[in-house]
Design a protein around this nucleic acid. Structure first.
Lengths: 131, 131
DNA sequence: GGACAGTACATGCACGTGCATTCAATGCAA
DNA sequence: TTGCATTGAATGCACGTGCATGTACTGTCC
Protein backbone atom coordinates (compact mmCIF):
# COMPACT_ATOMS: atom_id res chain seq x y z
CA UNK A 1 0.00 0.00 0.00
CA UNK A 2 2.74 2.42 1.00
CA UNK A 3 4.64 0.91 -1.89
CA UNK A 4 1.79 1.76 -4.22
CA UNK A 5 1.57 5.35 -3.03
CA UNK A 6 5.27 5.78 -3.40
CA UNK A 7 5.16 4.35 -6.89
CA UNK A 8 2.28 6.65 -7.75
CA UNK A 9 4.06 9.70 -6.42
CA UNK A 10 7.31 8.93 -8.16
CA UNK A 11 5.60 8.17 -11.41
CA UNK A 12 3.57 11.35 -11.29
CA UNK A 13 6.51 13.59 -10.45
CA UNK A 14 8.85 11.98 -12.93
CA UNK A 15 6.56 11.66 -15.90
CA UNK A 16 5.24 15.16 -15.38
CA UNK A 17 8.65 16.76 -15.32
CA UNK A 18 9.86 14.50 -18.09
CA UNK A 19 6.98 15.39 -20.36
CA UNK A 20 7.42 19.06 -19.67
CA UNK A 21 11.17 19.14 -20.19
CA UNK A 22 11.19 16.96 -23.28
CA UNK A 23 8.24 18.82 -24.70
CA UNK A 24 9.67 22.28 -24.17
CA UNK A 25 13.25 21.65 -25.17
CA UNK A 26 12.98 18.87 -27.71
CA UNK A 27 9.42 18.86 -28.98
CA UNK A 28 9.00 15.28 -27.84
CA UNK A 29 6.51 13.56 -25.61
CA UNK A 30 7.41 10.77 -23.26
CA UNK A 31 5.99 8.16 -25.61
CA UNK A 32 7.85 9.55 -28.57
CA UNK A 33 11.11 9.47 -26.65
CA UNK A 34 10.43 5.96 -25.48
CA UNK A 35 9.89 4.75 -29.02
CA UNK A 36 13.00 6.50 -30.30
CA UNK A 37 14.98 4.91 -27.51
CA UNK A 38 13.74 1.47 -28.40
CA UNK A 39 14.65 2.06 -32.01
CA UNK A 40 18.16 3.14 -31.09
CA UNK A 41 18.60 0.19 -28.78
CA UNK A 42 16.95 -2.27 -31.07
CA UNK A 43 19.67 -2.18 -33.67
CA UNK A 44 23.32 -1.81 -32.99
CA UNK A 45 24.69 0.40 -35.66
CA UNK A 46 23.17 0.63 -39.06
CA UNK A 47 19.63 0.19 -40.22
CA UNK A 48 17.37 0.94 -37.33
CA UNK A 49 14.30 -0.95 -38.28
CA UNK A 50 11.69 -2.59 -36.15
CA UNK A 51 8.29 -3.97 -36.72
CA UNK A 52 5.56 -1.99 -35.09
CA UNK A 53 4.35 -4.99 -33.17
CA UNK A 54 7.78 -5.47 -31.65
CA UNK A 55 7.60 -1.99 -30.25
CA UNK A 56 4.16 -2.65 -28.84
CA UNK A 57 5.64 -5.29 -26.57
CA UNK A 58 8.20 -3.03 -24.97
CA UNK A 59 6.37 0.27 -24.83
CA UNK A 60 3.39 0.43 -22.54
CA UNK A 61 0.93 1.67 -25.11
CA UNK A 62 -2.08 0.24 -26.83
CA UNK A 63 -1.71 -0.69 -30.45
CA UNK A 64 -3.69 2.35 -31.54
CA UNK A 65 -1.67 4.74 -29.42
CA UNK A 66 1.54 3.32 -30.78
CA UNK A 67 0.25 3.75 -34.31
CA UNK A 68 -0.33 7.42 -33.67
CA UNK A 69 2.99 7.95 -31.95
CA UNK A 70 4.67 6.55 -35.03
CA UNK A 71 2.53 8.79 -37.18
CA UNK A 72 3.65 11.83 -35.21
CA UNK A 73 7.28 10.81 -35.40
CA UNK A 74 6.98 10.25 -39.12
CA UNK A 75 5.33 13.61 -39.58
CA UNK A 76 8.26 15.16 -37.75
CA UNK A 77 10.69 13.36 -40.01
CA UNK A 78 12.24 11.34 -37.20
CA UNK A 79 11.26 7.94 -38.53
CA UNK A 80 9.98 6.48 -41.76
CA UNK A 81 7.31 3.88 -42.25
CA UNK A 82 7.78 1.24 -44.89
CA UNK A 83 5.90 -1.84 -45.88
CA UNK A 84 7.32 -5.07 -44.56
CA UNK A 85 8.28 -7.34 -47.43
CA UNK A 86 7.96 -10.64 -45.67
CA UNK A 87 4.50 -9.85 -44.32
CA UNK A 88 2.77 -7.10 -46.17
CA UNK A 89 0.39 -6.44 -43.32
CA UNK A 90 3.20 -5.20 -41.14
CA UNK A 91 5.26 -2.04 -41.33
CA UNK A 92 8.91 -1.43 -40.66
CA UNK A 93 9.86 1.65 -38.73
CA UNK A 94 13.24 3.11 -39.58
CA UNK A 95 15.04 5.75 -37.58
CA UNK A 96 16.19 8.67 -39.70
CA UNK A 97 19.33 10.64 -39.09
CA UNK A 98 17.24 13.48 -37.73
CA UNK A 99 15.57 11.04 -35.39
CA UNK A 100 18.87 9.83 -34.04
CA UNK A 101 20.09 13.37 -33.56
CA UNK A 102 16.95 14.34 -31.76
CA UNK A 103 17.30 11.37 -29.48
CA UNK A 104 20.93 12.16 -28.71
CA UNK A 105 19.84 15.66 -27.90
CA UNK A 106 17.04 14.53 -25.60
CA UNK A 107 18.82 11.76 -23.78
CA UNK A 108 20.94 13.76 -21.33
CA UNK A 109 17.85 15.73 -20.37
CA UNK A 110 15.99 12.51 -19.80
CA UNK A 111 18.68 11.03 -17.58
CA UNK A 112 18.96 14.26 -15.69
CA UNK A 113 15.29 14.27 -14.79
CA UNK A 114 15.43 10.63 -13.76
CA UNK A 115 18.36 11.23 -11.49
CA UNK A 116 16.58 14.17 -9.96
CA UNK A 117 13.28 12.47 -9.22
CA UNK A 118 14.30 8.88 -8.66
CA UNK A 119 17.55 9.59 -6.92
CA UNK A 120 15.79 11.46 -4.16
CA UNK A 121 15.52 9.13 -1.17
CA UNK A 122 11.93 9.51 -0.18
CA UNK A 123 10.25 12.87 0.22
CA UNK A 124 9.68 13.77 -3.40
CA UNK A 125 10.46 17.26 -4.48
CA UNK A 126 8.11 19.96 -5.56
CA UNK A 127 5.64 17.95 -7.60
CA UNK A 128 4.38 21.46 -8.18
CA UNK A 129 0.92 21.31 -9.47
CA UNK A 130 0.05 18.12 -10.99
CA UNK A 131 0.31 14.97 -12.92
CA UNK B 1 17.38 3.52 -15.54
CA UNK B 2 16.38 -0.08 -14.87
CA UNK B 3 14.58 1.35 -11.88
CA UNK B 4 12.66 3.70 -14.13
CA UNK B 5 11.67 0.94 -16.54
CA UNK B 6 10.51 -1.21 -13.69
CA UNK B 7 8.50 1.64 -12.24
CA UNK B 8 6.99 2.31 -15.64
CA UNK B 9 6.06 -1.32 -16.15
CA UNK B 10 4.55 -1.73 -12.72
CA UNK B 11 2.62 1.47 -12.98
CA UNK B 12 1.26 0.58 -16.39
CA UNK B 13 0.20 -2.91 -15.41
CA UNK B 14 -1.28 -1.89 -12.09
CA UNK B 15 -3.14 1.22 -13.12
CA UNK B 16 -4.47 -0.49 -16.21
CA UNK B 17 -5.88 -3.44 -14.33
CA UNK B 18 -7.04 -1.22 -11.52
CA UNK B 19 -8.90 1.09 -13.84
CA UNK B 20 -10.49 -1.80 -15.64
CA UNK B 21 -11.56 -3.68 -12.53
CA UNK B 22 -12.82 -0.67 -10.66
CA UNK B 23 -14.55 0.61 -13.74
CA UNK B 24 -16.31 -2.62 -14.59
CA UNK B 25 -17.35 -3.70 -11.12
CA UNK B 26 -17.78 -0.44 -9.26
CA UNK B 27 -18.24 2.25 -11.86
CA UNK B 28 -15.24 4.10 -10.52
CA UNK B 29 -12.07 5.35 -12.08
CA UNK B 30 -8.72 5.31 -10.34
CA UNK B 31 -8.92 9.00 -9.59
CA UNK B 32 -12.41 8.71 -8.19
CA UNK B 33 -11.33 5.90 -5.92
CA UNK B 34 -8.29 7.82 -4.81
CA UNK B 35 -10.39 10.80 -3.83
CA UNK B 36 -12.91 8.67 -1.98
CA UNK B 37 -10.09 7.03 -0.09
CA UNK B 38 -8.65 10.34 0.95
CA UNK B 39 -12.07 11.41 2.16
CA UNK B 40 -12.51 8.27 4.20
CA UNK B 41 -9.03 8.59 5.67
CA UNK B 42 -9.21 12.30 6.15
CA UNK B 43 -11.79 12.14 8.87
CA UNK B 44 -12.04 9.48 11.50
CA UNK B 45 -15.69 8.80 12.00
CA UNK B 46 -18.31 11.40 11.38
CA UNK B 47 -18.43 14.26 8.98
CA UNK B 48 -16.12 13.48 6.13
CA UNK B 49 -15.34 16.91 4.87
CA UNK B 50 -12.28 18.24 3.15
CA UNK B 51 -11.40 21.32 1.28
CA UNK B 52 -10.79 20.74 -2.38
CA UNK B 53 -7.35 22.24 -2.17
CA UNK B 54 -6.39 19.80 0.57
CA UNK B 55 -7.20 16.96 -1.78
CA UNK B 56 -5.14 18.52 -4.51
CA UNK B 57 -2.05 18.10 -2.36
CA UNK B 58 -2.45 14.38 -1.87
CA UNK B 59 -3.90 13.28 -5.17
CA UNK B 60 -1.66 13.62 -8.16
CA UNK B 61 -4.03 15.63 -10.27
CA UNK B 62 -4.13 19.14 -11.57
CA UNK B 63 -6.60 21.50 -9.99
CA UNK B 64 -8.87 21.32 -13.00
CA UNK B 65 -8.83 17.54 -13.14
CA UNK B 66 -9.65 17.36 -9.46
CA UNK B 67 -12.53 19.73 -9.98
CA UNK B 68 -13.98 17.44 -12.58
CA UNK B 69 -13.44 14.30 -10.54
CA UNK B 70 -15.40 15.90 -7.76
CA UNK B 71 -18.06 16.90 -10.25
CA UNK B 72 -18.37 13.29 -11.41
CA UNK B 73 -18.54 11.99 -7.87
CA UNK B 74 -21.19 14.53 -7.00
CA UNK B 75 -23.19 13.61 -10.06
CA UNK B 76 -23.06 10.01 -8.91
CA UNK B 77 -24.27 10.99 -5.47
CA UNK B 78 -21.08 9.85 -3.74
CA UNK B 79 -20.08 13.23 -2.38
CA UNK B 80 -21.66 16.62 -1.93
CA UNK B 81 -20.17 20.00 -2.58
CA UNK B 82 -20.89 22.81 -0.20
CA UNK B 83 -19.65 26.35 0.17
CA UNK B 84 -16.96 26.80 2.76
CA UNK B 85 -18.15 29.19 5.45
CA UNK B 86 -14.80 30.51 6.55
CA UNK B 87 -13.65 31.25 3.02
CA UNK B 88 -16.45 31.49 0.55
CA UNK B 89 -14.16 30.92 -2.40
CA UNK B 90 -13.50 27.37 -1.26
CA UNK B 91 -15.76 24.36 -1.25
CA UNK B 92 -16.13 21.56 1.24
CA UNK B 93 -16.49 18.03 -0.06
CA UNK B 94 -18.53 15.70 2.06
CA UNK B 95 -18.70 11.96 1.67
CA UNK B 96 -22.25 10.65 1.47
CA UNK B 97 -23.41 7.32 2.82
CA UNK B 98 -23.56 5.99 -0.71
CA UNK B 99 -20.03 7.18 -1.23
CA UNK B 100 -18.77 5.34 1.81
CA UNK B 101 -20.57 2.17 0.77
CA UNK B 102 -19.15 2.37 -2.71
CA UNK B 103 -15.69 2.76 -1.30
CA UNK B 104 -16.09 -0.19 1.05
CA UNK B 105 -17.24 -2.20 -1.92
CA UNK B 106 -14.30 -1.18 -4.06
CA UNK B 107 -11.53 -1.45 -1.51
CA UNK B 108 -11.04 -5.22 -1.44
CA UNK B 109 -10.87 -5.23 -5.21
CA UNK B 110 -8.30 -2.49 -5.09
CA UNK B 111 -6.10 -4.30 -2.59
CA UNK B 112 -6.44 -7.50 -4.53
CA UNK B 113 -5.11 -5.93 -7.70
CA UNK B 114 -2.26 -4.31 -5.83
CA UNK B 115 -1.23 -7.56 -4.27
CA UNK B 116 -1.37 -9.21 -7.64
CA UNK B 117 0.72 -6.72 -9.57
CA UNK B 118 3.05 -5.36 -6.93
CA UNK B 119 3.54 -8.58 -5.04
CA UNK B 120 4.99 -10.27 -8.08
CA UNK B 121 8.76 -10.30 -7.71
CA UNK B 122 9.94 -9.07 -11.04
CA UNK B 123 8.65 -10.43 -14.32
CA UNK B 124 5.31 -8.66 -14.48
CA UNK B 125 2.33 -10.66 -15.53
CA UNK B 126 0.35 -10.39 -18.70
CA UNK B 127 0.24 -6.66 -19.15
CA UNK B 128 -2.02 -7.81 -21.95
CA UNK B 129 -2.40 -5.07 -24.42
CA UNK B 130 -1.69 -1.75 -23.03
CA UNK B 131 -1.44 1.04 -20.65
C1' DG C 1 -9.53 -22.84 -56.30
C1' DG C 2 -12.97 -20.66 -52.36
C1' DA C 3 -14.39 -19.69 -47.62
C1' DC C 4 -13.06 -18.36 -43.22
C1' DA C 5 -10.55 -17.41 -38.91
C1' DG C 6 -6.58 -14.80 -37.39
C1' DT C 7 -3.17 -11.08 -37.57
C1' DA C 8 -1.16 -6.18 -38.37
C1' DC C 9 -2.13 -1.80 -38.67
C1' DA C 10 -5.19 2.50 -39.21
C1' DT C 11 -9.16 5.27 -37.79
C1' DG C 12 -13.75 7.15 -35.58
C1' DC C 13 -15.15 8.17 -31.29
C1' DA C 14 -15.51 9.10 -26.35
C1' DC C 15 -13.14 10.31 -22.34
C1' DG C 16 -9.87 12.07 -18.90
C1' DT C 17 -6.30 15.31 -18.42
C1' DG C 18 -3.44 19.73 -18.37
C1' DC C 19 -3.04 24.55 -19.62
C1' DA C 20 -4.84 28.94 -20.00
C1' DT C 21 -8.47 31.70 -18.81
C1' DT C 22 -12.34 33.36 -16.19
C1' DC C 23 -15.02 34.59 -12.18
C1' DA C 24 -15.85 35.34 -7.40
C1' DA C 25 -14.06 36.18 -2.92
C1' DT C 26 -10.30 37.58 0.04
C1' DG C 27 -6.50 40.44 1.98
C1' DC C 28 -3.81 44.45 1.84
C1' DA C 29 -2.64 49.16 0.97
C1' DA C 30 -3.62 53.95 -0.01
C1' DT D 1 -13.99 53.52 1.45
C1' DT D 2 -11.77 52.33 -3.27
C1' DG D 3 -8.27 49.91 -5.85
C1' DC D 4 -5.42 46.02 -6.80
C1' DA D 5 -2.92 41.71 -6.41
C1' DT D 6 -3.86 37.01 -4.87
C1' DT D 7 -6.26 32.80 -4.14
C1' DG D 8 -9.94 28.89 -4.85
C1' DA D 9 -12.45 26.87 -8.01
C1' DA D 10 -14.88 26.23 -12.66
C1' DT D 11 -14.62 26.10 -17.73
C1' DG D 12 -13.10 26.31 -22.96
C1' DC D 13 -9.96 24.09 -25.53
C1' DA D 14 -6.45 20.97 -27.37
C1' DC D 15 -4.29 16.69 -26.97
C1' DG D 16 -3.09 11.86 -26.05
C1' DT D 17 -5.13 7.55 -25.04
C1' DG D 18 -8.05 3.21 -25.15
C1' DC D 19 -11.84 0.70 -27.19
C1' DA D 20 -14.30 -0.77 -30.97
C1' DT D 21 -14.24 -1.14 -35.67
C1' DG D 22 -12.60 -1.24 -40.43
C1' DT D 23 -9.31 -2.69 -43.99
C1' DA D 24 -5.80 -5.39 -45.93
C1' DC D 25 -3.20 -9.39 -45.83
C1' DT D 26 -1.93 -14.21 -44.18
C1' DG D 27 -2.62 -19.09 -43.31
C1' DT D 28 -5.60 -23.10 -42.99
C1' DC D 29 -9.18 -26.19 -44.01
C1' DC D 30 -12.55 -27.82 -47.27
Amino acid sequence: MAQWRDLLARHAATSCMLDRELGDKCGLGMSEFEVLERLVEGCGGGGQALRAQDLAHTVHLSQSALSRVIARLEKGGLVTRAMCESDRRGIVITLTEAGRERYEQARPLHREVLELTLGAPIGPLDDSSSN
